[in-house]
Amino acid sequence: MRTTESNPSPSTARGLGLHVLLTLLGLAMAAPFLWMILASLKTAPEAGDPAWLPRQAQWGNYPEVFRVIPFLRFAANSLVVAGWVTLLQVLTSALAAFSFSRLEWPGRDRVFFLYLATMMLPGIVMLIPNYEIMVRWGLMDTFLGLVLPSAFSAFGTFLLRQFMLGIPRALDEAAEMDGASKWRIFWDVILPLSRPGLVTLAIFTFMGNYHSFFWPFVMMKTVDNYTLPVGLLFFDSEHGQVTHLLMAAVTMSVLPLIVIFVFLQRQLIRGIQIGAVKG
C-alpha cells in the first residue's frame, strides 16, 4: 500500500467517505469489545442488564479480579509458556526452513511433502496419542508438557521456507564464495534477511498459544500452573453472577496482545509479503 502513496487522489470527498465507512466498520467490529469493557465496569446486578452503560463506573472491579483469582500468576504462566513455544518454534522452524530452501540433499522434497501433508491433519487426531505420551513421560501438570508438543511446527517451517525462497540466492552464493560455512550463512545472511518472516511467525505463534485452551485445560491440574484461558473459567460458580469480573479479567488478558500488535503490525504485514525482499 505504500507503493501508491506517491499519487494521492485529488477527490477529498471520496476519501472522506472512505474514512467514514472505515470508521463505521471499525466501530462495528469493536462494538462487542467495547461492550465487554463497559460490562467490566458494571456492578454485579447491572451486569445482567442489557443497557450498555454502567450507572457509575466500578473501577474497583479490576483490583477485585486480582483478589478473587491469582490473575498475575495466570498471566505470567501464559506469557512464559507462549514465550517458550514461540522462541522454540521460530528457531527450529528457521533451521528446518533453511534446510528445505537452501540446502540440496537427497530426499529433501519428499520429507517436505510429508511436512506439508501433516499440516492437513486435524490436531484432534494427535490429541489422544499426545496425551498418552505426556502420561508416559510424566509430563502431566508441567510446563514442559505444554511447551513441547507445540514447539515444532510444520506450518512455521512452511511459512519461513516460502519466505526464504524469496531471498535472492546471489546473496548466499557470494558468502559461499568467501568461504563461509552453511552455519554462518544461516546465521549471518539468511536469518537477518528473514526478520519480517520471523516476526510474522512469532506473532502468529504467540497469539495462538496465548489463547490455547484445550491442551492446558486437560494437562494442568495445579491451580498455580493454569494459563489465562483456563484460569478464566474460575469465574463460573464463584459467587453467583460474576459477568462483570469475568469481563474485567478478559479485558486485562487481551491488553498485552494489543500492545504487541500495535507495535509490530508493520513488521507483520511486511513479513507476510512472501518474497518481498527483492535483490
Binding site: 533451521l95 540440496e104 489422544i128 510444520a154
Partner: peptide, 20 residues
C-alpha cells in the same frame, strides 16, 4: 541438510509422526 532439520524433525517425529 538433515543436521539443520534435526531439532525440528526430532520434535516432529515425537509429537506429530509418532502420535499419528
Amino acid at each position: 541438510g538433515v543436521g539443520f532439520l534435526l531439532p525440528n524433525i526430532a520434535g516432529f517425529c515425537a509429537f506429530t509422526l509418532a502420535p499419528l
